[in-house]
């Protein structure tokens, strides 16, 4: 199979001007991935599926990843003009807020040519309002439930998905539990585990229940 760069070149040759970036994977697995822009993502996916040398006809895994905003501290050396006219190198720390985004990751294999994986990623603009991505379900039907799951658990809205509803959580559920900043409700079934964290939380939710004595018996 071609390397990820070759695949990128193939795509760029077919779709001039398409946004395709290779994301290196520094880990030992070295499964590098392609970051696709939204505009042509579905066309590129279709190309990957039907291109005879690739034939990535099997989308094995589709999942979301949440990358919340991160504060990145960068240290730069800046020349600062001193009052006496000389310049002096001063270390300046700039705090930069790396914007957060949600990511959908697809692992593609080829059943016809028996190779893979090719990993493609799509990223949303941010984590609040620009959370839509083109759905790849029309290209690979296997994404149907997985994209629903991503929608359910991460809140990525897939445009063009035939049946985008919550799948694992109930329809009335509000939040997206797999996001990193998800706060679990404190109203789950009261579990008197001897762990203080859980117990404190439970007590907060049920102020002085009748069976508190029982619960503390475990402490």
């Amino acid at each position: 199979m071609q390397s990820i760069e070759q695949i990128r070149d193939l795509i760029v040759a077919r779709f001039p001007g398409a946004e395709v970036t290779v994301i290196q994977n520094p880990g030992p697995a070295a499964q590098h991935s392609l970051l696709l822009g939204h505009a042509q993502a579905r066309d590129i996916a279709l190309f990957l599926r039907d291109e005879p040398s690739l034939k990535l006809d099997f989308c094995s895994n589709a999942t979301g990843v949440d990358w919340p905003e991160k504060e990145i501290v960068e240290t730069t050396k800046v020349k600062v003009a001193q009052p006496d006219g000389t310049e002096k190198l001063v270390e300046q720390k700039t705090k930069r807020l790396q914007p957060g985004y949600l990511e959908a990751v697809y692992h593609l294999y080829s059943m016809a040519l028996k190779h893979g994986p090719v990993v493609i990623r799509l990223r949303t603009g941010n984590r609040t309002d620009a959370v839509s991505l083109p759905s790849l379900t029309p290209v690979w039907r296997s994404c149907e439930f997985q994209e629903r799951e991503i929608f359910d658990l991460f809140g990525i809205v897939f445009e063009g998905h035939p049946d985008l509803r919550r799948i694992l959580m109930w329809d009335e559920f509000k939040d997206h539990p797999m996001r990193k900043d998800y706060v679990e409700p404190d109203d789950y079934e009261w579990e008197p585990t001897p762990h203080d964290a859980v117990l404190t939380k439970a007590k907060g939710h049920y102020p002085a229940p009748g069976s508190t004595a029982n619960a503390e018996g475990g402490m």
């Binding site: 994977n25 520094p26 880990g27 030992p28 697995a29 499964q31 094995s60 895994n61 999942t63 990843v65 990751v105 692992h107 994986p117 990993v119």
Partner: peptide, 22 residues
């Protein structure tokens, strides 16, 4: 593990069972 990601899969009895880790 060092920062990175990996997708490992095997042929389970029901099909491809895979784990994707970052």
């Amino acid at each position: 593990p060092k920062a990175g990601e990996a997708y490992g899969r095997i042929e389970g009895p029901k099909g491809e069972i895979g784990f994707y880790l970052i």
